[in-house]
Computed example of a mutant assay.
Amino acid sequence: MTERVKVMIVDDSATVRQVLSTLLSAEPDLEVIGTAADPLFALEKMNRNWPDVIVLDVEMPRMDGITFMKKLMAEHPTPVVICSSLTEKGAQTTIQALAAGAMDVITKPHVGLRDFLTTAAKEVAGAVRAAAKAKMKRLTPMPVVQPKYSADAVLSAVPDQAMHQTTEKIVAIGTSTGGTQALEILLTCLPRTAPGLVVVQHMPERFTTAFAQRLDGLCEIEVREAAQGDRVIQGRALIAPGGHHLALRRNGAQYQVNVLDGPPVSRHRPSVDVLFRSAARSAGRNAMGIIMTGMGDDGARGLKEMHDAGAASIAQDEATCVVYGMPKEAVKLGAVERSLPLHEIAGAILAFGNGRH
């Protein structure tokens, strides 16, 4: 029998601690080794028996979750799953926690909490298992039971012929687990002369607004959450809004975006496959596709479509990925021209924008 995953639950709500402890303890491969009302109590217990995964609230007494996250990552890196209320204020705080290294986020409501946690038990358990496998660096896709749609559910397949090359260049980026940190590193390296970027980061609805605002305050380029009809222009990055797909389209000499409804594709909304397919269809060889750290295979088929349409294609290499899932699948499909460490991707984007490939 494999060793069970040891879990510590840190939340100032007694209800959350009790319900999560009961639900996770019912899973045969998980063991709740302790609960605590705040990080200081948690550290006392953890120093006696260190967990494999911490389920962490953000707003707590004595020490907030972000401060605790920074302390953990500096002194004893440990996979963390954030369990936070979904409010605008909370979203901004949670984005900061993700940037500090949280592996996943489970959103909880202000009311009906007990029922929500019971309903979301499998989601929470799955997030804990995934975080445990990552060990802050490696993670394999975990089985899920939801229907898995392809990009056909949102966009028709790419036409047979790619567009003729033009001077207008765009870069499409897809990422998931570990992507909040990776995107911060990448986008803060880009000058305003960088080609326009369209980005899918797997993230819950309403979190993407705070994420884009945070990046915009850090970057020289403009970063904002995409809205219907936004232009993709030099020095601007558009982040797909949570809960919606993002697609590129060409309007005369300009590139714009469509924000689309539709079912989850590759089990995600927004989906990297949808973005990459639209880039293949609308930009062809005028585009570069970049697939970065993330669990699963979303974006692999879409990047292959971009590659086949003449686009440049790059994968983040295994050594610098938090999770070498999505890039690995793209490489296996033959969709990737080059695998690069994270710190070299900005240079590749700028070279592409200047006509060097």
Rank of each mutant, 00 (worst) to 15 (best):
R301K: 13
I349S: 03
A130V: 14
P77W: 12
P204D: 07
E337W: 12
L183W: 05
R231K: 11
Q316L: 04
D38G: 13
A335C: 15
N251D: 15
M103I: 08
R214Y: 08
R138W: 07
H202T: 08
E3P: 08
H343V: 14
L72Y: 01
P341S: 09
R17D: 00
K6A: 12
R17V: 03
Q18V: 10
P141W: 07
L350I: 14
P147Y: 12
A315F: 06
R17I: 06
V5N: 00
A151H: 06
S13R: 02
E220N: 11
R249W: 09
E305F: 05
K169E: 06
L342N: 00
I106E: 03
F41K: 14
P195C: 11
T177A: 11
H245C: 10
G229W: 01
I9D: 00
A99N: 14
L275R: 00
A237R: 01
R236E: 13
D298N: 09
F352N: 01
V158Y: 07
L56C: 04
I82A: 03
I345W: 02
S266I: 07
G101A: 10
A280L: 04
I95V: 15
A194S: 12
Q256T: 10
A335K: 13
V171M: 06
D261V: 11
N47Y: 10
N258E: 11
C189M: 13
I95Q: 02
L275S: 00
R267D: 13
M292A: 11
R114M: 08
L186T: 00
C189T: 14
E220I: 10
M326R: 01
A102N: 09
G296I: 07
D317K: 09
V111C: 05
L139K: 13
V128H: 02
V5H: 02
L113K: 11
G325N: 10
G294H: 01
D38C: 14
V272T: 02
Q96R: 10
T87P: 02
A348H: 14
C83L: 12
A132P: 02
G126S: 08
G355P: 03
V5L: 03
M136S: 09
K304L: 14
E75S: 13
V111N: 13
E329Y: 08
R249K: 11
L183Y: 08
Q146V: 09
V171A: 02
Q213D: 12
C219Y: 03
A348G: 11
N49Q: 15
V10A: 10
Q316R: 07
L350Y: 10
H245G: 12
T67V: 05
G101M: 07
T87E: 02
D64Y: 13
A279Y: 00
A319Q: 15
L113F: 06
